[in-house]
Write a protein that binds this DNA or RNA. Structure first.
Lengths: 113, 113
DNA sequence: TAATAATATTTGAATACTTTTATATAATAC
DNA sequence: GTATTATATAAAAGTATTCAAATATTATTA
């Protein structure tokens, strides 16, 4: 997969409320599966499935301590994305010249109107 | 929808190769539907469907010039996201202390091992 | 007004994603 | 060794996305 597609695929994997929460937790440090069972309110298998998806996509990894699996962040794109998700914007992108009521304006290119 | 969910939903809508391409084109300026039919190689109805999805989610809007619909970017989160998508990272997030071979380490919390 | 051009909508089929339920595995404790 | 705990996997059911095909709409041109 070329880097562009890979990055877009990451977006798709990440764009889920539970998985965003998991990743936010992981930016705070190592977490084991049962930590997530507590903090997210979903079943153990479902936690495991989300973690597996994140792991098979190279976003997280784990180490083992006894019977605990300790997950941690691996993909450096994630912290930047999570921060951007929280950014506030005051204004929309400025509108190109057109009438706000009739929504009429002039196409800047070369096609037949 | 609370802002957090709204933003996550934006991510989900955006996370598609065609729609990313559409948005990249729109960061360059106004485009009409047939511009996209040329630059993306997909059918006219499909272009229209993607544009409708982006529009109903408040990401883009359009003005009218004759029978052309001229689309433009509205959501200010988009340019930042597109830029982040292109960012290069040299290294993974640093691994917490654990053996790289056996993948054994110590859970930092309070649970039974 | 009829024909054409630009775009949108609808429907359906295929596919992908998500969650639930049940079961499996592997490590520790007894 | 048996029971228990932590986690994973599999199968099935439900839900959502995607795209293609056909049709509709609207503005312009002839």
């Amino acid at each position: 997969m070329i880097p562009r597609e890979k990055r877009i695929n990451l977006l798709k994997v990440i764009a889920h409320p539970i998985r965003i929460k998991i990743l936010e937790d992981l930016t705070q440090g190592v977490r084991c599966v049962s930590d997530f069972e507590d903090s997210l309110e979903i079943s153990q298998p479902n936690v495991s499935q989300h973690l597996t998806l994140l792991r098979t996509n190279g976003i997280i990894d784990f180490f083992v301590d006894g019977r605990l699996k300790c997950y941690f962040l691996k993909e450096p794109f994630i912290p930047d994305l999570l921060q951007l998700l929280k950014k506030d914007y005051e204004e929309d992108v400025p509108t190109p010249p057109c009438c706000p009521v009739t929504k009429k304006g002039t196409y800047p290119g070369e096609r037949r109107r």
